[in-house]
Each structure stands twice: as C-alpha cells, then as structure tokens.
Design a protein around this nucleic acid. Sequence first.
DNA 1: TAACCGTGGCG
DNA 2: TCGCCAAGGTT
Length: 315
Amino acid sequence: MFSRRDLPALHRSVIEWFDTAARDLPWRSPDRSAWGVLVSEVMLQQTPVVRVLPVWAEWMARWPSPADLAAAAPGEAVRHWGRLGYPRRALRLHAAAVALVDRHGGAVPGTYGELLALPGVGSYTAAAVAAFAFGQRENVVDTNIRRVHARAVTGTALPARSLTAAEMRLAADLLPAEPAESVRWNAAVMELGALVCTARSPQCGQCPVRAACAWLAAGRPAPEYVPKGQAWAGTDRQVRGAVLAVLREAEGPVVRDVLLSGPIDLGLGGEGRLSAALSRLHRLGAPEEQRGRALAGLLDDGLAEETAAGIQLPA
DNA sequence: TAACCGTGGCG
DNA sequence: TCGCCAAGGTT
C-alpha cells in the first residue's frame, strides 16, 4: 500500500512517463473547444480511440458548436454517428446540444453538477469534461484508472465488478492537490491503463510504477472472478444493430416488410451501403417476431423514426 | 443491482 | 476461431 509520503514520487513518475508516451489526440490539442472535449468523451464511452478519431473530426467540421448540432435534425446526428455503436449516444448528444442552447447560452458549462445534468452525461463524463476542458480538480474514474489502481495499489488483477465507494475513495486519496497537476495525473493514469497496464497483456516491463506495483510484487495473481461476457449472438441487440444499419443507410422511407421478413431482392445489386446493410440483416436469419421486437425498441428510443421518416409502424 | 444498449479488432 | 474488451449511461 502506498503511504501518503510516497505520493509525490508516484505522481512525478507517472506524469513524466505521460510527457513522453502520450498519444497526440486531437481533443487534447490546445485548439480544441470544450464542446470538442464533450463530444469526444461521449464518443469514447465503451468505444476505442482509433474508431472515434475520424468520426470526431467529421463532427467537429460539421457541427463546430453546440448551436450547430442543435439546429440539425436529431436523425442527422444518428446518421453521422456511423458505426460507432450505441447510437442512442448520438441522440443524447443532440439533446445535450439543445439543452446547452436553451439553458447555457450555447456554451458548455464548466462545473461537474451542470455537466451531470446533461443527457448522456454521467459521473465519469461530467468529471472528465470539467477536468480536461476546464482544468478543474475532479475525481475522474474510468475503466483504465480503475484497473491501474486495482493492480498498482490494491494488488488485484481486476477492479471490482462494479464501481464501488471504496474505489472512489482510493482515487480521491491519490489525486494531487494542485488542480493543474490533478488534470495531468488523471490523463496520465488513464493513458497508462490504455497503453501499458492493459486488460489483456499488460506491459509491466515498460511501466513507470513497476517497482511499486502491488500486483506485480504479488506475482501477478489471477483474477478473483470471471467477468461476465456480453451476450451477443442471437440477441435482440444484434438484430437492433442490423435493423438500424438499414435505416441509417436508407435515404428515404423503408418498407416495413423489408425489415421484418426476407431475404427480399430489391434489385439494388450487390453494391452500396444500403445493400450491404440489408444483406447483413438477412444473413442474421432472425425470426420475424424478433425483428419486430428490435424495430419496436428502436422506435421506442426515437432512433428509427429519426433515421428513416415514413417508416410504417409494426402492427 | 443487474440487465440492457453496438461494433469491430485483437489475443 | 471466438470470447474478450473498449475514456459508460440509463433504467
């Protein structure tokens, strides 16, 4: 266990590592806006950096301010979300942009509480934006930071199954007192988890805190539990994804029967994104009942109607 | 609390 | 090949 006396050295070694190893990400550029930081944080929820990069750049060019996105139709946000996954994030980001215009004069607020009140912004994202866009001292705790703390300090291979009060307390105890240093620390620990202290194959030989790591000292003990994998094949979620892909690629109304049954030859040939999306949906072979359920869920969330106006509602 | 919500790359 | 995993949020 780290004593409070060791903290300055710990902070220094991790931040010095960050200074040499940090990736050059556009939402870390001095040019980026608070809006850019917010968009990046939402896009990065459960989504790898490399996939976010091109979509973030396109969004920033298309909608450089909250007012720009708020003025667009919600469905445009969903379409330009592309295949990032969890598309309701796009709808919530649009709703957040509207809220920023309505309640904050079109600006991104700088406090944790105001950020937390925005759609799609939870405790992590609120803390991250307050810290990275506004330089505030916040207790930023994401999956990377949790894993680094679990290993280096607690000595376990994995953090708890779900975020615990004890983890939040530990993170708060480790946070540097100076705001500017706390921001660097948050970014540095996160980067360490993303690049070195990774889930699958940690590169302990390159770790700046290997000499102090409790997990390494204990001989890298195996996890105490097996993470529950996310079910995917055959789930409604998989069908939702395939249905939404068709709606997203369609330029006009989509005939309900095309979604609920198939395969249907639309005479579109084998090229084009719509054709590819239809092929994927048909290959799934999901029963009509499940397709109906997926479509109903998408309509319920406001994703289907926004994406393809004129769609016929399932009976 | 636990289930649900997408997608694609990698070990 | 295939299960695991990724800067979580909401209900």
